[in-house]
Amino acid sequence: MQRLAAYALITRTRAGVEEILLSRLSDKVTSGVLWALPGGGVEHGEHPRDAVVREVHEETGLDVEVGEQARVFSLHEPRAWRPGRRVDSHAVRLVFDGVVPADAPEPQTIEVGGSTAEAAWVALEDVRSGKVPTVSVVREALGLR
């Protein structure tokens, strides 16, 4: 099982605090609280840059501009657990740097019933310290691994 996904790393400084835009995974995806970069699966025939813009909008309600270049992360889990069974999973994740307008509204999830429960700006220090639980691609994109 292989999955190609595109994500955006979006940060800002507000009132002197560095923040990162994250999406909290829904109960449909995880049983505990877990945060991820906004983004998701690239559909067949879809350009990854278009996919990340679409996914960021669905998960946060925000319009993002992403750069031309992406960092590539690969995660192979030969015995990953997927609903009801073990699978040989390979996730290829493209992470683009993204920017939202300074006057953008607060994030809100547009897609109902999907993999995202909510979106929020989170203090980057809380992510770096581990206070906010995140999926591996967040830590990889921030150079924390």
Score class of each variant (00 low, 15 high):
Ala6Cys: 05
Ala6Ser: 03
Tyr7Pro: 00
Tyr7Ala: 03
Tyr7Thr: 00
Ala8Ser: 02
Ala8Pro: 01
Leu9His: 04
Ile10Pro: 00
Arg12Lys: 06
Arg12Asp: 07
Arg12Gln: 07
Thr13Glu: 15
Arg14Asp: 13
Arg14Gln: 13
Val17Asn: 11
Val17Cys: 13
Val17Pro: 10
Glu18Ile: 11
Glu18Gly: 10
Ile20Ser: 03
Ile20Asn: 01
Leu21Val: 12
Leu21Ile: 12
Leu21His: 08
Leu21Glu: 07
Leu21Arg: 05
Leu22Ala: 06
Leu22Lys: 06
Leu22Glu: 03
Ser23Asp: 12
Ser23Ala: 15
Ser23His: 13
Arg24Met: 14
Ser26Ala: 15
Asp27Val: 14
Lys28Thr: 13
Lys28Cys: 08
Val29Ile: 15
Val29Pro: 08
Ser31Arg: 08
Ser31Ala: 12
Ser31Ile: 13
Val33Ile: 14
Val33His: 05
Val33Cys: 08
Leu34Val: 11
Trp35Lys: 04
Ala36Arg: 10
Leu37Ile: 01
Leu37His: 05
Pro38Met: 08
Pro38Tyr: 05
Gly39Lys: 03
Gly39Leu: 02
Gly40Asn: 01
Gly40Ser: 08
Gly40Lys: 00
Gly41Phe: 09
Gly41Glu: 10
Val42Gln: 02
Val42Lys: 01
His44Leu: 15
His44Asn: 13
His44Thr: 15
Gly45Lys: 10
Glu46Thr: 00
His47Gln: 08
Pro48Val: 04
Arg49Val: 03
Arg49Asn: 00
Asp50Asn: 06
Ala51Phe: 02
Val52Ser: 01
Val53Tyr: 01
Arg54His: 03
Val56Leu: 03
Glu58His: 15
Glu59His: 10
Glu59Thr: 10
Thr60Ala: 06
Leu62Asn: 03
Val64Pro: 01
Val66Tyr: 04
Glu68Trp: 13
Glu68Tyr: 13
Ala70Pro: 00
Val72Cys: 09
Val72Ile: 14
Phe73Lys: 02
Leu75Trp: 03
His76Ile: 11
Glu77Ala: 13
Pro78Met: 07
Ala80Lys: 14
Pro83Tyr: 08
Pro83Asp: 10
Gly84Cys: 06
Gly84Pro: 10
Arg85Leu: 12
Arg85Tyr: 10
Val87Leu: 11
Asp88Ala: 07
Ser89Cys: 11
Ser89Leu: 14
His90Ser: 05
His90Val: 07
Ala91Asn: 05
Arg93Thr: 09
Leu94Tyr: 04
Asp97Gln: 09
Gly98Val: 04
Gly98Ile: 04
Gly98Asn: 04
Val99Arg: 13
Val99Asp: 10
Val100Pro: 05
Val100Arg: 00
Ala102Cys: 09
Ala102Asn: 12
Ala104Glu: 13
Ala104Asn: 12
Glu106Ser: 09
Thr109Arg: 09
Thr109Gly: 12
Ile110Met: 15
Glu111Pro: 09
Glu111Asn: 15
Val112Gln: 14
Gly113Ser: 07
Gly114Tyr: 08
Gly114Trp: 11
Gly114Asp: 09
Ser115Thr: 11
Thr116Asp: 05
Ala120Val: 09
Ala120Phe: 12
Trp121Gly: 06
Leu124Pro: 10
Glu125Tyr: 09
Asp126Thr: 09
Val127His: 12
Arg128His: 08
Arg128Pro: 07
Ser129Ile: 06
Gly130Trp: 04
Gly130Asp: 01
Val132Arg: 02
Thr134Lys: 00
Val135Gln: 04
Val137Asn: 01
Val137Cys: 02
Arg139Lys: 05
Glu140Gly: 01
Glu140Asp: 04
Glu140Phe: 00
Leu144Gln: 06
Leu144Thr: 02
